[in-house]
Amino acid sequence: MATLRDIKRKIDAVKKTSQITKAMNMVAAAKLRGAQENMERFQVYAEKFREVIGRLAAGVEQDGTFELMTPREEVKKIELVLLTADRGLCGSFNNNLIITAERFIEQKRSEGVEVSLTAAGRKGRDYFKRRRYAVRQELTGLLNKPNYDDAFQLGRQLIELFLDGDADEVYVIYSHFRSMIRQEPTVLRLLPIVPEGQDELEGGREYIFEPSHQELLNDLLPNYVYNQMLDCFYLTAVSEHAARMTAMENATNNCKDLVRDLTLTYNKARQAAITKELMDIVGGAEALKK
């Protein structure tokens, strides 16, 4: 049975752990506010961009003129971009993304499709390297401060892979932020581009484009890929901070419960020790009387 000193030492250790988890919760909350503001500002632009691409795509014939929108007759090779965090202590956030990626890879391999992996995040990279998956590229630090330059560089590499025939399709697995307690691992097909359908006439108005649809699409389609990539960065970064904040809050509450239970155990053990001492004193006194 643990001594009073051992229990007291354990209570102090749990209280110190609680202080750490509370501090991490506050840090995650501060980062979450900034990341969420950036995400919300960018999503207004991203949604409008998707709407414009949809209108432009509706005004041209899908005859293979635009390579980024043309599906391959046979899909043999796929490039998968997996976005995970570089750090842990965020509950099941990384694990859910990794499981989604692993199931996706196994499904495609069962269909006879070769899958190459771009691991954007230390947790995903370490997991798949340990299991000897084909990791084409390793990236870290993308979610610390999502920016257009990183999205542009990664998007351009993916476009080159697609145009050179090294990948027939490109997918991204990211975490879609729904709420503070709900972040969904999501699979997005990045290439070939499938814009949301939009009619050329909307609300009785006809849109006139200058220059032509073709010229605009040639210029905007690569930017569409970059924007989609940056949108995935923002959503995953916000999801990471939300998951870490929730995990640290739960850990802090668990520490409080554990301290309460240990304090009760300590008091019971202390009371038992005092009772034993009193019984020894009373027993000694009775023995002296006799």
Rank of each mutant, 00 (worst) to 15 (best):
P222Q: 09
L264I: 06
K256A: 14
L190T: 01
C232G: 00
G91W: 07
L161A: 15
V75S: 09
L80R: 01
R131L: 13
D164W: 00
Q271W: 12
A237D: 01
L32D: 09
E206M: 12
Q107H: 03
N250P: 07
Q19R: 04
Y133G: 00
V75Y: 03
N25S: 15
T21C: 11
E184P: 09
L188N: 00
V187W: 00
E74P: 06
A13K: 00
A251N: 14
G121P: 12
H241I: 02
F93G: 03
F209T: 09
V170N: 02
N250C: 11
L288M: 12
K256N: 15
S92D: 14
E74M: 11
T100P: 04
V194N: 06
L201I: 14
L278C: 12
K22S: 15
I99E: 13
L216E: 10
T21P: 11
L217Y: 03
N95Q: 14
L258E: 15
E61M: 14
A134P: 03
A134F: 13
L230G: 10
T70M: 03
Q183K: 04
G283E: 07
T186H: 08
P195C: 02
I78D: 05
K290L: 03
E200S: 04
V135Q: 01
L68H: 02
V259C: 04
G141P: 09
K268W: 08
D12K: 10
A35Q: 03
C90A: 12
E277M: 11
E202R: 08
K145T: 10
C232A: 06
N25K: 15
K268G: 10
A57V: 02
E74K: 13
D12C: 03
S239G: 15
M1Y: 05
A57C: 02
